[in-house]
């Protein structure tokens, strides 16, 4: 388990938990980020916001928010051929 903010481009995750208040949970869930959903990171430059992929949708998300999304790694960089 780790914060999504530490994921690297190409890695895939399953969301385990959203750590935040009601507004936070609601907002992310509406956008399709909810516990159980699988997503991958398209871009994370270690600075500024992150781009996520859920199916064919791309979502830009602030680093602060990404710190509060707890994920389970599915496929790490090393496993991607």
């Amino acid at each position: 388990m780790m914060a999504l903010a530490f994921g690297r481009p190409g890695e895939e995750f399953e969301v385990a938990e959203l750590r935040g208040g009601r507004g936070f949970i609601r907002r992310l869930s509406e956008m399709g980020i909810y516990p159980g959903v699988k997503l991958s990171i398209v871009s994370n430059q270690g600075f500024g916001p992150i781009i996520l992929a859920i199916n064919s949708t791309r979502i830009g998300i602030g680093r602060g928010m990404a710190m509060k999304i707890i994920v389970k790694p599915l496929k790490t960089k090393e496993e991607i051929p």
């Binding site: 907002r27 064919s56 979502i59 602060g64």
Partner: peptide, 9 residues
């Protein structure tokens, strides 16, 4: 308000 936005193709 923090950023969460769709980036359309």
């Amino acid at each position: 308000s923090p950023l969460v936005m769709e980036l359309p193709p």
